[in-house]
Simulated scan of single mutants.
Amino acid sequence: MAELQLDQIDFAILKLLQSHGKLSNQELAVKIGLSPSPCSRRVKALEESGFIAGYATLLSAEHFNLSLTAYVQVRLDKHSHEVLESFETRVCGYDEVLECCLLTGSDADYQLKVLVEDMSQFKVFLLDKLTTDPHIAGVHSSFVLKQVKNQTSIPLPQS
């Protein structure tokens, strides 16, 4: 498949869908200034070419009493492929972990973004789950006092 070359209309579609994912094709077409059929074809092409990775509903953590966000830096004792892969597999199984990133330029190997109800639940996560991994050499946790910016959309080139 030839790589899709994006134009201003494609960027406008992507920008709108990032912030208003529930727009119907009809609504999207009106906002973009296209008729529904070409708009639908463009969205399908953007999906098939991988520019649109998927669709999701963002839930409100506060409505589920999830009020404690922690950033946890993890240092491993070994850096073999097997140890890294094993750690990543375990972490992906923890519902409390929203993000897991392999780092460079830091004393930590990984940074986790963890969301739980309270400090008691964080303690259970930390002691009963995370630190049971025998290859963890150190953990440093920081807690969010105030979320200043939370954005799910990615920056797109200016059209």
Rank of each mutant, 00 (worst) to 15 (best):
D107P: 06
V91S: 02
Q73I: 01
F64C: 11
L127I: 06
S60D: 15
V91M: 07
K78Y: 11
Q151K: 10
V144I: 04
V43Q: 08
A45T: 00
R41K: 10
S19L: 14
I136L: 10
L98R: 03
T152M: 10
L4G: 00
K149A: 09
Q73V: 04
L103R: 00
R42A: 04
E88D: 12
V74E: 07
Q5P: 04
S120E: 15
I154R: 07
Q8Y: 08
E88A: 14
D107S: 13
L58P: 00
D7R: 05
A70V: 06
E96P: 00
D128H: 04
Q5G: 00
T57H: 11
P157T: 06
H79S: 12
V144T: 01
E88C: 09
Y71C: 03
H135V: 00
E48G: 01
V116Q: 08
E96D: 06
G50V: 12
F143L: 11
S142K: 09
L14D: 04
L16W: 07
L23S: 00
S24F: 05
E48A: 08
Q5T: 03
A137Y: 10
V97P: 06
A53E: 15
L46N: 00
R90S: 11
V72Q: 07
A137W: 12
V116F: 13
L102M: 13
G21A: 14
V72P: 07
Q111I: 15
S40D: 11
T152N: 03
H79R: 14
L59K: 01
T57W: 15
M119C: 02
